[in-house]
Design a protein around this nucleic acid. Structure first.
Lengths: 220, 220
DNA sequence: GCCCGCGCTGAACAAGCGTTTAGTATGCTG
DNA sequence: CAGCATACTAAACGCTTGTTCAGCGCGGGC
C-alpha cells in the first residue's frame, strides 16, 4: 500500500514557518482571497512582519506553493484505489495533520496556474506508471494512448472531486476525511461500474470516433 | 439532434438588460470578482445606475443567475455525445452569441452555491433520462443505481472540463468553441475507451466494492 | 560601551471597492 | 404649468487591503 512518510514535523517553529503554516491552513479553508491581516493574526504576528519575511502577499503564496509541492512530491504513489484517481490525496487526508496540505493542493488546482499544473503533472505521471504496471499484470486493459488515458483519468478524478466540493462545501473544512468518506459513498458504485464495464453495450461509438480521427478500427 | 432554440434575441435593449448582459459577459470571462465599475463602464453607464437598477452588486449577480438559468433550462437536452456528459453545453458553445452564457454557467459551477446546484441538477436530470432511454434501447448498459450514475457522469464530465480550463486557460476567452475542440482532441479517445470497455480486465474490484457495501455480487 | 543585524510593531499611506447622496434632465399626467 | 416618476450622473463616503515607514528591543561582536 501507500508508503506514507511521517507527517511534517513541527521542528521548524520559527516565525517564518509559523506564518507559512498559518497561511497554508487559512488558504486551504477560505481560498487565496484571504487577507494578509487575517493570516498574520492567525500566526500571532503583525502584517508587516509577514511582508518582512516574504516580501509581499504574493511572496507568501509562492513560499506556500513550494512547500506544499515539495511535501506532496515526496510521497510514494498509489494512483488508483477505491476512491479512484484521487487515491493518493485520499490517503493523505486520513491524517489530520496532512489535511491543510491536501486542502491547499485542491485550492491550487481549482485556481489554476503553475502549481496546479505541477500537481496534475505529478499525479498523472504516477497514474501512468501505475496503469502500465496494471496492464503488464493483466488487471487493467491496455489503451491506444497510455499517456492521454492517465492524464484524462487524473483530470476526471480531481475535477469531479473539486466540483463536488464546490456543490456541497464541507460543514467542517478541517474534516476532509469525513468529506471523502461521504464522497466515496455517493460515487463509489457508479465509478466502479464505469471502470469495470464501461457505459456502452458495444463499441460502435468508439469505432465511429476512431473513424472520425482517421484511425481505422484496430483488429483487436 | 439538439433542438437548439434561437439565440437570445437582442430585442431587450433597455439599460437594465444592457447592464445585465455586460455583467454576464464580464463575469464569464473574469469571474465574479469583477468590479461593479468595470461592468458599468462596459455597459456605458455609471456605477450608481447599476445599483439603482439592481439594488446592489449582489442584486446584479442574482439577476444574471436567474437570466442564465432560465435560458439554459429552456434548451432541449442532448446529454451524451462525442464530448461526453458536457454535450449540451458543447452544442451551445458552438454559437458565438451563447458563449457568454455557457461561460457564466461554468463560472457558477466552479464557484458553487445555489445556481451551481441548479445547473447540475438540471444536467443530471437530463442525463438520467437519456441514459434510461439508452438502456431501454439496448445501447447503454444498465446500472444498479441509475440516479447515482447519471449524477456522477455529469459531475465527472463538468468537473473534468472545469479543471482542464483552470489548468490551460483559453487564450481567447471569447472563443469557447475552439477550446472545446481542443479539449475533445485531447480527451476524446480516452473517454471513448473508458465508456466502451471500462478500465479493469475483470470485475474483481467491483465485486470487492459491492462486498464492502454489504451488497453481495449480483447474479448478472 | 557602541554598532550592527535581526525580529518585530503600530501607524500611516495609497488604492480600490460597493454604496450613498444630491442633483439634473426628460416625459407624462392632471 | 406644476408635480411626479424615471433615468441618469458625479462626487463623496466608509471600509478594506497590501504595502511602506519609522521606530523599539535584544543579542552578539569588537
Amino acid at each position: 500500500m501507500l508508503n506514507m512518510r511521517s507527517a511534517p514535523a513541527a521542528e521548524d517553529s520559527t516565525a517564518r514557518a509559523r506564518i507559512r503554516d498559518a497561511a497554508v491552513l487559512r488558504f486551504s479553508r477560505e481560498g487565496f482571497g484571504t487577507s494578509l491581516r487575517t493570516i498574520a493574526q492567525d500566526a500571532g504576528v503583525s502584517a508587516a512582519l509577514v511582508v518582512h519575511h516574504f516580501g509581499s502577499k504574493d511572496g507568501l503564496r509562492q513560499a506556500c506553493d513550494e512547500h506544499v509541492l515539495a511535501v506532496i512530491r515526496d510521497q510514494k504513489r498509489e494512483a488508483l484505489g477505491p476512491s479512484g484517481p484521487t487515491e493518493m490525496l485520499a490517503r493523505m487526508a486520513e491524517l489530520d495533520e496532512w489535511a491543510p496540505l491536501v486542502g491547499y493542493a485542491l485550492r491550487s488546482m481549482q485556481a489554476g496556474g503553475d502549481l496546479a499544473r505541477a500537481f496534475l503533472d505529478h499525479f498523472a505521471a504516477d497514474a501512468e506508471e501505475y496503469l502500465r504496471e496494471g496492464v503488464a499484470a493483466g488487471t487493467i486493459l491496455p489503451s491506444r494512448d497510455e499517456v492521454a488515458r492517465a492524464r484524462h483519468l487524473t483530470v476526471m478524478g480531481y475535477g469531479a472531486f473539486l466540483l463536488d466540493i464546490a456543490l456541497h462545501p464541507p460543514e467542517d473544512p478541517a474534516d476532509l476525511r469525513a468529506y471523502l468518506h461521504g464522497y466515496l459513498e455517493r460515487t463509489g458504485l457508479p465509478a466502479m461500474e464505469l471502470f469495470t464495464q464501461g457505459l456502452f453495450t458495444d463499441r460502435s461509438m468508439l469505432d465511429a470516433y476512431l473513424m472520425y480521427v482517421t484511425d481505422p478500427p484496430a483488429e483487436a
